[in-house]
Design a protein around this nucleic acid. Structure first.
Lengths: 400, 400
DNA sequence: GGGCTTATGTCGACGGTCAAGCAAAAGCCA
DNA sequence: TGGCTTTTGCTTGACCGTCGACATAAGCCC
């Protein structure tokens, strides 16, 4: 019965979480500035600030601003108070990292790890590798506040379970978060790999952009969407599946999904490699296409640029529908330089209405192959550093 | 300086708004049930409830549940405590209404009113008509808590100003909300007409659906989008502009926007009327097409069904991208019965991936030509009955 | 009508927040 | 080095919101 008051919206509102969310931008501030920003009395502010200092989530900075009198100590978000475990699991390849609370990578690893070995072998390896990475950067498991994982297939984000994944045998409805939480002792969050890449890129531009589309062009084609600063996952978590939108004048091309004329079958990295191979070039996967382009191979360059145009056709429709202010192009094939982007821009800017394109940027991924792990970390941070969660954590220690 | 505490996140948190948002579903509840739902003590709950009773936003209901002892009085949201003024201004036609707090229409009017007469004449007429409608349903201007208006062009929702509207001469950057607020003494909110129709339809299904697309098929074609229960307006407020997406194999059809092959030029009501007229039928606007279809005119039926297919082609892409759980078809042309829907469904269900379509409904508008005024009312209610707004209103009265 | 059950209003107690005041700390400047 | 300015920490008293408990009200059932 005392619990019901704790659960209720009343309770001892610590408000430390609100304070932290102000400081999360990293800028150091004095007590006076913080009291002004929060509207609290200085005494109250000190109380809240002490709570965050106790948790080491905030730390005093060295720079004292000379003001004629006693210089005010400034306080800033302490990025290194905790660490986050982040993993981006692809079909054949895995990338994992330990990051701090501002998504800075502290230790990193990249390895071949086929997802089709099944959940238990892959996740066991993951836990082991995380322990090694923690050792590398000299942090203990006690410093770790959460785990974020991206998987190459549809994931029901609320439960973190893969649902009917086409290329992940044995993973269907496997309770990934529970499995990881039990072994690592912290909350685990799971989402689709394209979604977390979108989240990572969004993080980099969040102050300027609220509606963004991240397009991943690898073997296949998919995209992640942010609307109003939040990830749009759709009704079945299947939003962003643009790889199987039909593009005109390719009705004869058969896609692995069974339909014909899908964007992925026309402009995906796998399709490009197959087409170049048929023309006598040495290419089996999308990375090989990138290699050919970098080597100046003319058929490859032409193919990539044309792929950009086909993707641009679909994105032109998407821009009219969604009106984003930024499209980010990522994935393996995006590393083929400007050729792909040029093709995309060529079509999008000519096909959409001026109102929708006049302030639209189409850019290459800033984070490159780190977009996934960054996004996985962001996903954890949004959960762990949310005001309510911080309030609860503070209460659990002080009021316990 | 005492104001800073009022502005600050601290302040006297009345919480009456949170209580009202529970009761807004209309179901009557006892004090005990409400205390349970909010987690507050009964004494606190009575305090909050009294505040809402004073504002007449909540009223006791008659039905006392016999429980062996003293029967508990039940309380319910008082829909008729205030009224809302709602207007749906089209290019040539205007529809306005007075509604209660549950969007029930109390008085209604429909009239020819060309938008190109300019903002001052149109809005002056609007204010006058609102006063007459208020008289019709026996309510005074003091009962009115807000005004909602839909306009046939792009609107910057934050400021309520039309921006570069193609068909509203004189309205560009006109401060509609300020103009109306000054004359009617309540907050005014303005948005695009398609957005408010989407909001109206969303209101009807909000308990089951969070991601919805509302497609308006009239003279032109446009759509409104809800993501996670919130309207997605896009970066320039131009989201949903699907009328100018290019559809394949119509590259020779010229659109009024200057491009070719636009969906609107192929499947819009204006285009259908023109095509039927060229074939010797008597049709000049989209309503005439509906008339012909209802009369059993075979070319008109075929044209409408084919238009449904073309729209379906675009929606199939949109479904793959956005993964909504509901598509609602509205606008004049939607009243041509099942022919249009059949065409849309035919294409969407065959072109999109099963994961995205297995739980997708494609339905005709429930609200019909009342979608706009309902949505305008919803827009106002979301603003006026938001917890924070209710708290402020309660404080202003009780706390002087 | 009397006893029973349940609902509702009132009152004192508790705890969190604020404002003000004071002493100490920490640099600046003469 | 000593006075000045400004920040900071601490304490006190007051205020307000919330809670729990008690007393009262209101109908039901025998």
């Amino acid at each position: 019965m005392s619990e019901s008051t704790l659960m209720g919206s009343g309770g001892p509102a610590t408000g430390a979480g609100a304070l932290l969310s102000i400081l999360r931008d990293g800028r150091p501030r004095t007590r006076a500035e913080l009291a002004e920003l929060t509207g609290w009395a200085r005494s109250t502010l000190s109380l809240r600030l002490d709570a965050l200092l106790n948790q080491r989530l905030v730390a005093p900075t060295d720079d004292a601003i000379p003001s004629g009198g006693r210089p005010a100590t400034t306080f800033a978000f302490n990025q290194s108070a905790r660490v986050v475990l982040a993993a981006d699991l692809g079909v054949t390849h895995a990338r994992l990292a330990v990051t701090d609370l501002a998504t800075t990578v502290l230790a990193e690893r990249s390895a071949e790890m086929p997802i089709d070995r099944g959940p238990v072998p892959v996740l066991t390896w993951l836990v082991e590798s995380f322990h090694e990475l923690l050792g590398e950067c000299g942090r203990g498991i006690a410093d770790m506040c959460g785990i974020g994982v991206g998987l190459p297939g549809p994931v029901e984000h609320d439960t973190g379970k893969p649902v009917n994944p086409p290329i992940m045998p044995g993973w269907d409805r496997f309770a990934v978060p529970e499995w990881l939480s039990a072994r690592l002792g912290a909350p685990a969050l799971v989402d689709n790999d394209v979604n977390i890449m979108a989240l990572g890129e969004y993080w980099a531009v969040r102050s300027q952009v609220k509606h963004m589309i991240f397009v991943k062009i690898g073997t296949g084609v998919g995209c992640g969407i942010t609307s109003g600063g939040r990830l749009h996952r759709g009704a079945q978590g299947a939003a962003g599946d643009i790889g199987h939108i039909r593009v005109p004048s390719f009705e004869d091309v058969v896609c692995r999904c069974g339909n014909t004329g899908c964007l992925e079958a026309v402009a995906g990295g796998g399709a490009l490699a197959a087409r170049l191979r048929a023309a006598g070039e040495d290419a089996s996967v999308s990375r090989d296409v990138v290699g050919l382009v970098r080597a100046g191979n003319v058929p490859a360059i032409q193919a990539v640029r044309q792929a950009g145009r086909e993707i641009g056709t679909v994105l032109a429709s998407v821009v009219s529908f969604f009106n984003p202010s930024l499209i980010v192009i990522g994935g393996d094939l995006a590393e083929a330089g400007e050729h792909l982007l040029a093709g995309v821009r060529e079509v999008v800017y000519s096909r959409s209405l001026p109102l929708a394109t006049q302030h639209l940027d189409i850019l290459a991924s800033e984070l490159g192959d780190r977009a996934g792990i960054t996004g996985a970390a962001v996903m954890v941070l949004e959960h762990v550093l949310a005001p309510d969660a911080v309030d609860q954590a503070v209460m659990a220690v002080s009021g316990g």
